[in-house]
């Protein structure tokens, strides 16, 4: 194959009375394209038909008027978008903005907590003999293979009004009697952190395993304290993994549905539950769709920031295909 790329070095002066364009090349390209379509075509078509197209429809519904049964109706309007921003016939209300901000905050703090928990675990695993590492990593991942509902349910058991943890909080005076640690913001935070911890550990581990220890050795002579050594020689090298981890935790946590509905309760509404309610309970599809548009804007913004930052770091994260 190198012949192919080397051939590019042939100067045009060498090209005299030979055919102008590569007809064979065009035929080969057509044959490749045809084979690409019969192999990858069905799968790509499937995804477009059952996800890309439905998502477009969903987003489009955000620009429709609401019909009698909560269904989308002509004419096109910006009312649902305005409603999401808080404007209604009753004036402006901050409820939706609060919900979006609360969800963002929950997602960001869940990412932060997983980072705090993940670093010691990752370096603990790295410090073990290579043969042992996959097993230790597996033990971090295993719980996430159980269904999310089961994992969240486990915390209902732990944080409910009758649980030992709630009793402890009640005796310490942190919690009024007969109430549990659940439902509430704290329970939701714990649930999100627990659910998404492995999504932080795995990319961080991948980055830490490739760590260039010679840099650490060199830094050992330069920096007196271990903490400074970590911040200047180790931490920067784990940044690509950390970035992926933040994306993998924050994006699903932001739009999570199970944790807010099981652990959050009615008072601390989150955007995921709010959107779902527009389709499952009080049907108002245009409003729900408009909320979805906002959610996707935040998601895309997050991905964009991630791309820009990882490009700046020179990492090839996410460029596999």
């Amino acid at each position: 194959m190198d012949e192919l790329s080397d051939a590019a070095g042939v100067p045009m002066s060498a090209i005299t009375n030979a055919p102008q364009s590569g007809t064979a090349e065009r035929a080969e390209r057509l044959a490749r394209a045809w084979r690409l379509w019969i192999t990858a075509g069905p799968g790509l078509f499937w995804i477009v038909l059952f996800l890309v197209l439905p998502s477009m429809i969903l987003l489009a519904i955000g620009f429709f008027s609401i019909g009698n049964y909560g269904n989308p109706h002509l004419p096109l309007t910006l009312t649902p978008i305005r409603e999401v921003a808080g404007y209604s016939i009753l004036g402006w209300s901050p409820a939706n903005i609060t919900t979006i901000l609360r969800s963002l905050l929950q997602a960001v703090s869940a990412a932060g907590l997983t980072i705090l928990l993940a670093y010691p675990v990752v370096f603990f695993i790295i410090a073990q003999p290579p043969a042992l590492r996959p097993l230790l990593l597996l033990f971090v991942i295993l719980p996430s293979w159980t269904n999310q509902v089961v994992r969240t349910y486990a915390w209902m058991e732990l944080l409910g009004p009758g649980s030992a943890l709630s009793h402890l909080a009640q005796t310490l005076g942190l919690l009024p009697p007969h109430l549990g640690l659940m439902p509430g913001l704290l329970a939701m935070q714990i649930g999100l952190t627990y659910n998404y911890l492995p999504y932080m550990v795995v990319p961080l581990y991948a980055a830490a395993e490739k760590l260039d220890w010679s840099l650490v050795e060199a830094g050992r002579d330069l920096y007196a304290s271990g903490a400074r050594l970590f911040w200047s020689a180790v931490f920067p090298q784990t940044l690509p993994g950390l970035l992926s981890g933040i994306i993998l935790v924050a994006i699903p946590a932001f739009g999570d549905y199970v944790v807010p509905t099981l652990l959050g309760g009615g008072k601390s509404m989150m955007i995921g539950a709010l959107i779902a309610a527009q389709f499952l309970q009080t049907p108002n599809w245009p409003y729900g769709a408009a909320l979805t548009i906002f959610m996707l804007i935040f998601t895309c913004a997050g991905l964009l920031v991630f791309r820009v930052m990882s490009k700046r770091l020179g990492s090839s994260e996410g460029s596999m295909l």
Partner: peptide
């Protein structure tokens, strides 16, 4: 794609 959006898009579709 967030699961929730995925699910609702398909629900509507």
């Amino acid at each position: 794609m967030p699961s929730l959006v995925f699910g609702i898009a398909d629900l509507i579709f």
